[in-house]
Amino acid sequence: MATTLSTLDAWILIAILSVASFLPRASFLWIAPNLPLPEPLKRALRFVPAAVFPALIMPAILINEGAIDISLGNAHLAAAAVAALVSLRRGNTFVVVLAGMVTLHLMQAWHASGL
């Protein structure tokens, strides 16, 4: 059951998130910038963005009520598919996001209409 945070809770939370956000970001940029890295680790770094973004995206578009949903009934999937097509046609980010959001709301209106 959700509770409401007290003022003290809120400031403790702010302190916790500040540390938990800054430490990973500061690790190499601020704390240890000149740490010599072994060659394999440098090569692995090249794959960080390629691997992380799909990992952030896929659950948001394919998980529907806790399970993988690959069907027309999944409006998020349809929206992402349209957005991906726009992205491949070299649309800029704003156009990609707009195309996705319009598709999402159209699909949900369509489902709600029961047609």
Binding site: F53, P54, V97, M101
Partner: peptide, 21 residues
């Protein structure tokens, strides 16, 4: 849902060759 869509728009720039795919 704007958040994953923003990331989606960025995938194309990070994927360059077979290994990154």
């Amino acid at each position: 849902f704007c958040v994953p869509l923003t990331f989606l728009a960025m995938v194309a720039a990070t994927v360059r060759d077979r290994a990154t795919v």
